[in-house]
Computed example of a mutant assay.
Amino acid sequence: MGEHMSDDAVRLSSVTRRHGSGDTSVTALDQVSLAFPRGTFTAVMGPSGSGKSTLLQCAAGLDRPTSGSVTVGGTELTGLSETALTLLRRERVGFVFQAFNLVSSLTAEQNVSLPLRLAGRRPDRARVREVLRQVGLGDRARHRPTEMSGGQQQRVALARALITRPDVLFGDEPTGALDSRTSREVLTLLRGMVDRDGRTVIMVTHDPVAASYADRVVLLVDGRVDGELLGAGADAIAARLSGLEAAPC
């Protein structure tokens, strides 16, 4: 494995994903090649139906491409069995979704330690507390989701995603259910994880303000990459997006 490969946390090479077959087949991704360097924060944006979620699912090993290849942390996913894929996702990938997906009967620390239990590993209580402290919830370890605000629940979900020390953190509209102030707090946390801890974050969002926290914005249209913006502010991102929305099909 060459050194240059290991500089990318995730790499997609000519990834195509078709759903269905024959006349009814829909191409969700069309020959997408993208690299996500380690220690960077990328936002993926585009009109509804542009393939954003499919891109995320293929990049994270949740969905298999019809053709092309995906590499996560230097491991090529194409030839992996379902078991090997599950292990890779469990150990090297973290997920945060718009829905917090917490188990309501469990405390914050029990929710955070769940991925370790699923992997048959004994949770280290100090590590669980440390991750909760990292997301600003050190004093909430014993609280259940119903005793928390939406922002606090999303931070528990973030801590749960981080407990396995993943190579890459995937977010699918992670601030979609939050008000703007809480959204900013979660985005600042994600930004800090990239800057301070060298984590790699890949986030699908429709919100130009959320996207402005990223190092770059990758634009998708009809399953193809339609350029990218580097270090752009919310207004520039919004203007570019509205241009995409208005473009003739």
Results as ranks from 00 to 15, higher is better:
residue 5 M to D: 06
residue 6 S to M: 14
residue 9 A to N: 09
residue 10 V to G: 13
residue 11 R to H: 03
residue 11 R to V: 05
residue 12 L to P: 14
residue 15 V to D: 10
residue 16 T to M: 02
residue 25 S to K: 11
residue 29 L to P: 15
residue 30 D to M: 10
residue 33 S to E: 15
residue 34 L to E: 14
residue 35 A to P: 07
residue 36 F to S: 14
residue 36 F to Y: 12
residue 38 R to N: 05
residue 39 G to M: 07
residue 42 T to N: 05
residue 48 S to A: 08
residue 52 K to E: 09
residue 55 L to C: 13
residue 56 L to W: 10
residue 66 T to K: 15
residue 67 S to Y: 05
residue 69 S to C: 04
residue 69 S to L: 03
residue 74 G to F: 03
residue 74 G to Y: 03
residue 81 S to E: 00
residue 81 S to D: 01
residue 85 L to T: 06
residue 89 R to T: 08
residue 92 R to W: 00
residue 94 G to L: 05
residue 97 F to S: 01
residue 101 N to L: 09
residue 101 N to D: 06
residue 104 S to M: 01
residue 107 T to I: 06
residue 110 Q to G: 02
residue 113 S to W: 07
residue 115 P to G: 11
residue 121 R to Q: 11
residue 124 D to L: 02
residue 128 V to W: 08
residue 128 V to D: 07
residue 129 R to K: 11
residue 130 E to A: 12
residue 133 R to H: 09
residue 136 G to M: 08
residue 137 L to Y: 06
residue 141 A to Q: 06
residue 143 H to F: 02
residue 144 R to F: 00
residue 152 Q to S: 05
residue 157 A to Y: 01
residue 164 T to K: 14
residue 165 R to I: 00
residue 166 P to V: 05
residue 166 P to D: 06
residue 166 P to M: 07
residue 168 V to G: 10
residue 170 F to I: 03
residue 174 P to H: 03
residue 178 L to P: 02
residue 179 D to Y: 01
residue 179 D to S: 05
residue 182 T to L: 07
residue 194 V to G: 01
residue 194 V to C: 01
residue 194 V to T: 04
residue 195 D to W: 01
residue 195 D to C: 04
residue 196 R to V: 11
residue 206 H to A: 02
residue 212 S to I: 01
residue 215 D to H: 14
residue 218 V to W: 04
residue 227 G to L: 11
residue 237 I to V: 06
residue 239 A to S: 11
residue 239 A to F: 04
residue 240 R to E: 09
residue 242 S to R: 15
residue 242 S to N: 14
residue 243 G to P: 09
residue 249 C to A: 13
